[in-house]
Design a protein around this nucleic acid. Structure first.
Lengths: 213, 213
DNA sequence: TATTCACGTTACCGCTAGTAACAACGGATG
DNA sequence: CATCCGTTGTTACTAGCGGTAACGTGAATA
């Protein structure tokens, strides 16, 4: 039963890996994105070199940690965009899904997006580009959905990608600002953003005050 | 002539400060955003403590370095938005101004936006939130312009701020992606983004393929 | 002449990410 | 039984980082 042996080994290794990831997540949630490898190892009850054996470097651990949440978010967004309703409703559902996610787990969101801020320990998770991968991926996914479903004429792919990345960026920046200031309930933000995408800026009238400014 | 003396001192100090900032900028442009205080000091021909006397900490140096470019960009955007043309043209001009800026000096842009990536030295400018301040400021500026000029009905301010941050985020994300992939000339990107803001997503027809997906 | 003040240094601290070298357990194999 | 091998774990280290304390130096002021 050698194969079973090896499979046991591998599954054990993967289980250990999951445990380490959960410990890392606990530390990140507690200490913020600026968690040190030492702290994570301590939380897992081990020492640094083991972390490095499992994840290579800090970027590897970050990536492993990020992929989970990113996957979950992408799945949720896909579901929202696949609903059998009209386009406006689907867009609002997608916006709401994203905003609900960052509202429910702001620390996770901050970890995924912002390399190092607040929460005591300053120097930290400078793995390289952080927000970029997630935002890029979301942008590409949305671009695919748009290109598949919306009639954009000649330069279809190009427009779809520009719009995909643009909309994701809009969602992200507005969400980031909203999460910090909480100036209105979520559904209002969703409506405002959908209005913007539905040409609100183009159709609104001029506000005439004095001349010029 | 005591006053002249002190003024000489102060102006000398400020000149020194400018020189240090220029050295820092040179290093950042050469080594990427992950430039160390040691390297900057060496470039300026001095040692670390002097940098710290001038700028307090690394965040102070970053901020001083960022304010210059940020101010210049904000001024240019204001000018574009103040042109006496119709709204669509002003929006396109603003988009083009921003994109031209990041196209002309991508390293500066990367420094302002992305904490630490590529370019050899990995661990670096982890001053705290980086892109946030610039994007927030741009968002607030745009929100003010919108609130001043566009008739948005009852919840004017709220909508203006959501739209301001949303549009800035759209511009930023699309620009970031475009700068990396260069999939089309700048004016095309500008037109696509303006089309999106002008309700392109709302008015485009469905692309009917198979059933559902 | 003595004081003051900015400029500049060397030498250090505590922290980080990451790595070598070694120990211990367990199953497979001679 | 003894031996090898792979995994898990350790301690102890390196090199570099941001940041600071303590100390000189030289020019202007009282």
């Amino acid at each position: 039963m050698e194969t079973t042996q090896r499979e046991d080994q591998r599954s054990a290794t993967e289980r250990r890996r999951r445990e380490l990831l959960e410990a890392a997540e606990r530390v990140v949630l507690r200490d913020g994105p600026g968690a040190s490898m030492n702290a994570i190892a301590a939380e897992a009850g081990i020492t640094k070199p083991i972390l490095y054996r499992h994840f290579g470097d800090k970027g590897g651990l970050y990536r492993a940690l990020a992929v989970r949440h990113t996957d979950a978010l992408v799945d949720a967004l896909r579901a929202a965009l696949d609903a059998p309703t009209d386009r406006r409703e689907r867009v609002e559902a997608a916006l709401d899904t994203y905003l609900a996610a960052i509202e429910a787990r702001p620390q996770v969101y901050r970890f995924l997006m912002h390399p190092a801020e607040e929460s005591g320990g300053e120097r930290g998770f400078d793995v390289g580009q952080h927000s970029a991968p997630l935002l890029r991926r979301l942008g590409e996914e949305l671009a695919m959905v748009i290109a598949e479903r919306v009639d954009l004429g000649a330069d279809r792919e190009e427009r779809a990608r520009v719009w995909g990345h643009g909309i994701v960026g809009m969602m992200h920046a507005a969400g980031d600002w909203w999460l910090g200031e909480r100036p209105c309930p979520r559904e209002r933000l969703v409506r405002h953003l959908a209005d913007l995408l539905w040409g609100g800026l183009a159709t609104a009238k001029d506000l005439v005050g004095g001349p010029g400014l």
